[in-house]
């Protein structure tokens, strides 16, 4: 996994509650057996005027001028600013894969759905929960400040606005370590292989029906 330490990135706003994973990456693109290449189809149904299917040349498709991420000023954004319950719905990891492939490394929201939140950390994306008042202010600043950027510092656990206002955020200590170092979870877990084996043997003796 790609490590995440600090980022100075352009912010793109998506001013909606309950953005679901079907919206982030529609189901027809889930037929891929690869992990990459989902970026051009992120938010497909909102982003394009036509209906998208796998295998299309997305560069030739008509863009929806009313979709905020299509505005010229937000091209190259790496921080997505949104509202509450972002990533609700399906557990598809294709959603964070699509966001990452699109170029987002940070999602700032009032709240996240659990499974999506967890999936982000597995892919080097930092999901940050901030209070509603801070989010409201960030939406205002993003709209009225062309090229509005934020510094996101995972080490220091703060988001810093261009005016110097620093907003602290919480992050689980273990997840923070993994993200800072780009660690592979499986490798970490396998350090406990003996414990897993012992646990499994005890379980097999006590509840044999689980192992038939």
């Amino acid at each position: 996994m790609q490590a995440f330490t600090k980022l100075d990135g352009l912010v793109a706003p998506l001013d909606r509650n309950n953005v679901d994973t079907d919206a982030i990456i529609p189901k027809q693109f889930l037929k891929s057996i690869k992990r990459s290449g989902f970026g051009p189809n992120a938010f497909d149904e909102w982003r394009y005027m036509d209906h998208g299917e796998p295998g299309m040349d997305n560069s030739k498709r008509p863009l929806n001028p009313n979709f905020v991420l299509n505005q010229q000023r937000y091209q190259g954004a790496s921080v997505l600013l949104t509202r509450s319950n972002f990533g609700c719905g399906s557990s598809r990891e294709h959603a964070p894969w699509a966001l990452l492939d699109y170029g987002f490394r940070v999602v700032i929201a009032e709240s996240f759905a659990d499974i999506f939140f967890n999936n982000c950390f597995k892919n080097g994306i930092l999901p940050i929960v901030l209070p509603k008042a801070e989010i409201d202010a960030l939406f205002g600043l993003t709209e009225y400040t062309p090229g509005f950027k934020l510094v996101v510092d995972l080490e220091q656990q703060k988001v810093v606005r261009p005016d110097g206002h620093a907003i602290p955020f919480e992050v689980d200590a273990f997840r923070r370590e993994c993200l800072l170092n780009g660690w592979d979870d499986i490798g970490l877990t396998l350090r406990h292989a003996d414990k897993i084996k012992a646990f499994e043997e005890r379980r097999r003796a006590e509840q044999p029906w689980l192992f038939s």
Partner: peptide, 14 residues
């Protein structure tokens, strides 16, 4: 439910 990274994690480590 879990994501695909965790599907792999469960396969590898139970």
């Amino acid at each position: 439910g879990i994501g695909t990274s965790e599907v792999e994690h469960v396969m590898a480590t139970q």
